[in-house]
């Protein structure tokens, strides 16, 4: 069982308390009704499936219930970083291999 650090609770908690919520940093357009087919396709259907570093959303559903962002290595399953929702994608990752 993984340990995941909730950036709101500021501590590591067992995976059981969390639920994955898909890829992070996919913003919904403020003018979604006027979005082109291509843009809507990118927003709604297209997802990265990287081998290695992935940016994804998690929810501390059985804890503080907040959504937050995480950087995880899909090869080792290790969490590199977690940060609050709304914060920008980190420019530099601590100790990231790639």
């Amino acid at each position: 069982m993984l340990l995941i650090r909730c950036p709101y609770c500021e501590e590591e908690r067992p995976e059981l308390e969390f639920r994955n919520a898909g890829e992070a940093h996919i913003a919904r357009s403020t003018n979604i009704a006027g979005e082109s087919d291509d843009d809507f396709e990118k927003f709604f259907f297209i997802r990265a499936n990287p081998k290695g570093v992935i940016y994804e959303r998690w929810r501390h559903i059985h804890g503080c219930a907040r959504f937050f962002n995480a950087v995880r290595d899909t090869v080792t399953d290790k969490f590199i970083l977690t940060y609050k929702a709304g914060e920008p994608k980190p420019a530099k990752l601590p100790g990231a291999a790639k």
Binding site: R28, R57, I61, F67
Partner: peptide
């Protein structure tokens, strides 16, 4: 969960 997701993130 759906409501919270939109409220917290969008």
């Amino acid at each position: 969960n759906h409501m919270e997701d939109y409220l917290q993130t969008e």
